[in-house]
Write a protein that binds this DNA or RNA. Structure first.
Lengths: 233, 233
DNA sequence: GCTCGCTGTAACACACTTGTCACATGAGCG
DNA sequence: CGCTCATGTGACAAGTGTGTTACAGCGAGC
């Protein structure tokens, strides 16, 4: 039985007040997340690089390196560039909010905030992560055409008949083309969080996908030991 | 994007404080929108129906009919059901925020807010809302003819007798031809957001529709696990 | 009152989908 | 060269989605 427990999603919480960290961590854990924390910008960056969290909750007000700075630096580093960030701001910081958004924070919550709301935001953000910002709804790769709103896939103008899961798997991979997606990641994005599904299931679906795609299957690379990738180029 | 001059998009602003309306309107206009406004729920609903704005900015706190109520009513009315809504809430209204989103607001902004941010949100929402609907009132697809104002459907010049619901279902699908519509979406657009209704009801009506359409029924595709689609081409 | 048509729900059948297993294959590594 | 482990492959049972039929409530019209 190779069925394994789903890997919890890891959240990095960055705040200089221990009480705040405590409160946030408690609620995120209760919602089923794994939580790590940092008290200042420096260690936040280090932990983000080393532990590759799935999302970051970041206080705007930090000693020494300020939250916006941390945000910018996270975006510059390739290993952390695409991690969703939620900013925590003291109320009435309107200007900073926008700047935060423009600098690459994905969402923000104003203090004082309700833990429930924060958890909701985190969940939302992780879900949204599946569809990248300018989510192309029509993609063409040589002979392969993917039309999301029409739910249509064609190879060399011949329509390919995919099931809902196969279609979703293909679009997720195609939207993240070039980047390897782990099986866990795919399970989360294609199968929606709460599934205790064997990672081998991904392999099976990918196999079916390849079979149906025929010649266009060569777009789908296997990265041994890591996951799958939709070939860029 | 075609090069022709784009018609300004119309935004309805609903707030009981004249200053707030003024501020919002000024900034939206500066961003190139046409703005209309209402000071209470009642007139908001009326203007929304009559002027069919492209988006609505709606204050949560309104005299008499409250913002959430307005939101719900907008969703129930067929002509306004799918207009994107941005809620304005006084800060710390956390619970209401969440409820607002669940009731069908598409986004919200907390007071005090920066005008720039609001404009940003509106733009985002409109972008997300995406492609303009091809709501022609007379459509012809081979042997199938749909005349919306006359409430008339013919197949091979033989008039087909549809009930109100069937007719609406058919026109909604036809107007969105090519794109798959989920059952939930159809419930919202055809049944006006009566979420009390079982999704299987859609199936039944579609079956009746197919039966009555006879040969023209082949225009209606089932996309398993996703929804229904009026065949393009 | 009654009937009739429309609507939403329930129940069932059937085909397709899906997650898992067992085994085959093959890459990577000493 | 041979071992080990990750992935490919084919098969299968259970689960799920949809077509189909039937039926009850309800309002309109007579």
């Amino acid at each position: 039985m190779s069925s394994e427990l789903r890997v919890k999603q890891k959240i990095l919480v960055v705040d200089d007040e221990p009480d705040a960290v405590e409160l946030i961590a408690f609620n995120l854990k209760a919602a089923g997340f794994e939580v790590i924390s940092a008290m200042d910008g420096e260690s936040a960056l280090r932990r983000a690089r080393q532990e590759s969290p799935d999302a970051i909750v970041l206080d705007l007000m930090l000693p020494e390196v300020d939250g916006l700075e941390v945000c910018k630096m996270l975006r510059r580093n390739s290993t952390t560039a695409s991690v969703p960030i939620i900013m925590l701001t003291a109320k009435a910081e309107e200007v900073d909010r926008i700047i935060g958004l423009e600098l690459g924070a994905d969402d923000y919550v104003t203090k004082p905030f309700s833990p429930r709301e924060l958890v909701l935001r985190v969940k939302n953000l992780l879900k949204r992560q599946g569809a990248p910002e300018g989510d192309a709804d029509r993609m063409e790769f040589g002979e392969l055409l993917i039309d999301v709103p029409r739910h249509l896939v064609t190879v060399k103008d011949r329509s390919v008949d995919l099931t809902a899961t196969e279609f979703k798997l293909l679009t997720v991979l195609a939207q993240r083309r070039g980047r390897v997606q782990s099986r866990e990641r795919l399970l989360r994005d294609v199968w929606n969080y709460d599934s205790l599904i064997d990672t081998r299931t991904v392999d099976t679906h990918l196999r079916r996908l390849r079979e149906k795609l025929g010649p266009a299957a060569r777009m789908l690379d296997t990265v041994r030991g890591v996951g799958y990738r939709f070939r860029d180029s």
